[in-house]
């Protein structure tokens, strides 16, 4: 059971990184991105590419980040003219286009089959590899969190929040909104791709089913439930949601419910959790800290 706990905690750390990425976009800058999972996918397929081409596995990371950066910039470009809800739909559409293309292009991406047999990270450390990986992911999560905190507490962070709250005012003060958007997308895409790369080498398998839109919505639920624009909050949200989702099968076993219960319960946890928080506690469990001791 302890091994399973390590497994769930590891995945939760990776989701935490993704939640931080989305938080930068949606929480701090007001960019309603529904195509986040495609950025994650750039990371996973970057790893797959390295494996397929016979490169050293670590080369998959820059490959994935490069692809994600391009995609992120494309999203940003779209955002110039569109208001937030339309941009959300546009990013969702693009993520779906990418997923469908991957599913059909067998030669390039392994198609619906995906690419399996990726090298498992720290495989040489068995039987302690699980704990080693968890340790690494915790360190990565902490580093990304530190980075995000520094970013949002800096002057640039202030401009992000201004763009979210009063875009007209920001423009009138001379802020280049397009540049802010581009930078935020680049940074958060790189973070998302990093999470994808680590995930690919954890699961040893990369497939288009990992990129379906419910995955993006899951990450959204982590941000909204955890606390919009509160980095610690979204990490808490990630852990809460991931543990809830992972332990559903055990509840099913304990209460002897049919197999469909698992999928339905997960949908209700994400959808119901999202809706409940949106209606009654839209700021999330850990609301954004406005103001604060250093006068920002």
């Amino acid at each position: 059971m302890f091994d399973f706990f390590i497994h769930v905690a590891s995945i939760a750390c990776l989701y935490g990184v993704l939640a931080l990425s989305l938080n930068l976009q949606a929480g701090f800058t007001g960019l309603v991105n529904f195509g986040l999972i495609a950025l994650f996918g750039c990371g996973t397929y970057g790893a797959a590419l390295a494996s397929g081409m016979g490169w050293h596995p670590l080369l998959g990371l820059p490959a994935g980040i490069a692809m994600a950066a391009l995609l992120g910039l494309f999203y940003a470009r779209l955002g110039r003219k569109l208001s937030s809800d339309y941009w959300g739909i546009a990013t969702l559409s693009i993520a779906e286009i990418i997923r469908i293309s991957i599913t059909n292009e067998q030669a390039l991406t392994g198609g619906a089959q995906g690419i399996s047999g990726l090298p498992l990270l720290f495989a040489g450390l068995k039987p302690y590899d699980g704990m080693a990986r968890l340790a690494l992911y915790v360190v990565v999560l902490a580093l990304v969190w530190l980075f995000c905190q520094r970013l949002v507490k800096s002057a640039f962070g202030l401009s992000m929040k201004l763009m979210r709250e009063e875009p007209q005012l920001a423009r009138s003060l001379g802020y280049d909104l397009d540049r802010i958007r581009r930078v935020v997308m680049l940074v958060s895409s790189a973070i998302a791709a990093f999470a994808g790369f680590l995930y690919a080498h954890y699961l040893t398998f990369v497939g288009p089913d990992q990129l379906v839109s419910p995955e993006t919505f899951l990450i959204w639920s982590m941000v909204i439930i955890g606390g919009v624009a509160n980095n610690r909050g979204v990490i808490a949200g990630a852990f809460l949601m991931q543990f809830a989702m992972a332990y559903v099968p055990f509840i099913k076993d304990a209460l002897e419910l049919p197999t469909d219960f698992v999928a339905a319960a997960r949908l209700i946890i994400v959808g119901g959790g999202l809706l409940a928080f949106l209606l009654w506690r839209p700021k999330g469990l850990f609301p954004e800290k406005v103001g604060g001791s250093n006068g920002r």
Partner: peptide, 30 residues
């Protein structure tokens, strides 16, 4: 649901409608 969410922001209402879709899917599944 939606009248309340719209008071906040239309993007929030969009997310709310997504959440509602998921709940409906779960109901169908069950």
């Amino acid at each position: 649901v939606f009248e309340r969410l719209l008071k906040v922001d239309s993007a929030i209402a969009l997310i709310g409608s997504l959440a509602l879709s998921m709940i409906l899917s779960a109901v169908f599944l069950l």
